[in-house]
Computed example of a mutant assay.
Amino acid sequence: MLKVKELMKQDLTSVQSHETAYSAAMMMRVLKIGSVFVKEHDHIVGIVTETDLVRKVMAMNLSPESTSVASVMSAPVICINQDRPIWGVADLMEQSNVRHLAVTDDHEAIIGIISVRDLLHPVAIDDF
């Protein structure tokens, strides 16, 4: 059975909590990703996603250049262990109403991320 660690991305892109929504959005654009972790003192304290930027910044008519990521991040970060079966990802995402999960090792350290988009890859391969 396919496990989370086989589909997760190991790139942990992050911004500091005092940075702006604009800088997070630009980072996502350049790296072609849908989320970035938010750090304070080298600890992940939240996550900012494209959805957060749309719903909490743009739809609220806030200035992306002056809105901190700390004020719009989703926290706490919802996590799943790397050794869980992949079907557990969709279940946890649905229960938590999120599209991105942090992936943890056995010591509960965040080592990756998995998104709804990552779940589509094995389905596409199995269809052929």
Rank of each mutant, 00 (worst) to 15 (best):
D126H: 10
I111W: 09
S68G: 07
H100F: 03
R117T: 12
E19Y: 06
S74F: 00
A24Q: 00
T104G: 05
I78V: 15
L7I: 05
A59P: 02
E6Y: 06
Q95A: 13
V98S: 12
W87I: 10
Y22P: 00
Q82T: 01
S66E: 13
R29Q: 12
V77A: 06
I80N: 03
L12H: 07
D118P: 01
N81K: 08
V89T: 08
H18W: 11
V4E: 00
V54E: 01
K5Y: 15
D83N: 15
F128A: 12
T67S: 14
F128H: 12
T104F: 01
S35N: 12
R29W: 06
K39G: 04
L62A: 05
T104Q: 05
L2N: 12
T49P: 03
M28Q: 02
D126K: 10
L12T: 06
N61Q: 12
T49E: 04
S71E: 14
S63F: 01
L119Q: 08
E108F: 12
T104D: 05
E40H: 09
C79N: 13
E50F: 03
K9R: 13
V54S: 06
D106M: 02
V103S: 10
G46L: 09
V45S: 08
Y22L: 14
I86C: 06
R55H: 14
R29C: 00
G46M: 02
V57N: 06
M93V: 05
E108S: 14
L92T: 07
V54L: 15
V77C: 04
A90W: 00
T13A: 11
E6K: 09
N81Y: 02
D11E: 15
T104W: 09
M58Y: 15
D106E: 14
E94W: 06
H100A: 07
V123K: 14
D91C: 11
I111H: 10
S96N: 10
V4N: 04
D42A: 08
D11H: 15
M93Y: 06
M28D: 09
S71R: 10
T20K: 06
V15A: 02
I44K: 01
L31H: 14
